[in-house]
């Protein structure tokens, strides 16, 4: 089984707070991997570092065999570095998130970030822009009619796939919450990813919607040939569809394994003690 994404000793420190500490993950191609942990464990931060939102303090991110981010503590950070892994990585590799998206990694956000004032259709269509071939003038003078038509058709068929075709002309912000989440997934899919990162896709959904979402994630994974990496608090969903699970607590990885292994892990149970187990 080949690995699509991996991190090596990935550490992210904000001021004195080590939000992600020595994270080492391997995400096999074609599988669903989950990242769980109590609030503030550093899950979203890990996503942000992997997708190029933040530059890691130390460590390396490898996507499809290529190093997409690498860094070591410098200047002031060198003095206050608090991570548990102290061997510094020597090179610096920086890629902005737009570059990483074009390499084939797309994400959704925990606190939905749609283009609120634009229509549902435009939201998806915009995500197709990143692979446009026509230049600015060609596009302005509509010399790329074929490309433009293909983009709209792809966007429409994606909307149909996620069941939002009828809402295509509505403003994104006018959609109910559950549909906004699905639109975010459709928009991420429109960039043509190989790896899809979902940050709490079921947040705010009722059990029925959550079940539908589980099914939906498995469906799109199969039909688009995706690898999925997801953060989720709904344990039913995580246990149902994940092939393997990483558990974070205070930035550190406290467990890794199959759903069954993780469920019975002492440290995991302790970390979640007192935390609502949905």
């Amino acid at each position: 089984m080949s690995i699509l994404l991996s991190t090596q000793h990935l550490t992210m420190q904000f001021g004195g707070v080590v939000a992600v500490d020595d994270l080492n993950i391997n995400i096999p191609k074609g599988e669903i991997t989950a990242l769980i942990g109590p609030n503030g464990a550093g899950k979203t931060t890990a996503f942000n570092v992997i997708t190029g939102g933040y530059q890691p303090t130390n460590g390396r991110v490898i996507f499809d065999g290529a190093v997409i981010a690498e860094n070591c503590p410098r200047s002031k950070m060198k003095r206050i570095y608090n991570g548990s892994y102290t061997e510094p990585f020597r090179h610096t590799v920086v890629n902005k998130s737009d570059v990483i998206t074009r390499l084939g990694m797309a994400r959704t956000f925990q606190n939905i970030r749609l283009f609120k004032d634009l229509t549902v259709f435009e939201n998806v269509l915009i995500a197709k822009h990143c692979h446009i071939k026509a230049g600015l003038f060609a596009a302005t003078f509509r010399l790329n009619r074929g490309e433009e038509r293909a983009m709209s058709q792809d966007a429409l068929s994606l909307l149909e796939r996620v069941g939002l075709l009828e809402s295509r002309n509505e403003k994104a912000s006018s959609l109910p919450y559950g549909k906004q989440r699905r639109l975010e997934i459709a928009r991420a899919l429109a960039t043509g990813p190989r790896l899809l990162l979902l940050d709490e896709p079921a947040a705010g959904m009722n059990p029925k919607e959550t079940d539908e979402l589980s099914q939906f994630i498995v469906d799109i994974k199969d039909s688009f040939g995706l690898t999925v990496f997801l953060i989720e608090h709904h344990m039913n969903l995580v246990m149902d569809i994940s092939d393997s699970i990483y558990v974070l607590d205070y930035g550190k990885t406290i467990a890794y394994g199959t759903p069954a292994e993780v469920q019975n892990n002492e440290r995991v149970i302790q970390a979640y003690l007192g935390v609502d187990e949905a």
Binding site: K96, D98, L114, F115, I126, H129, T191
Partner: peptide, 19 residues
């Protein structure tokens, strides 16, 4: 459309591959 995406939300626009 990419310009409008930047207007709406820079972080989301960048995450959608728009430089």
């Amino acid at each position: 459309r990419a310009f409008k995406a930047i207007r709406e939300d820079e972080i989301a626009a960048e995450a959608m591959g728009i430089s």
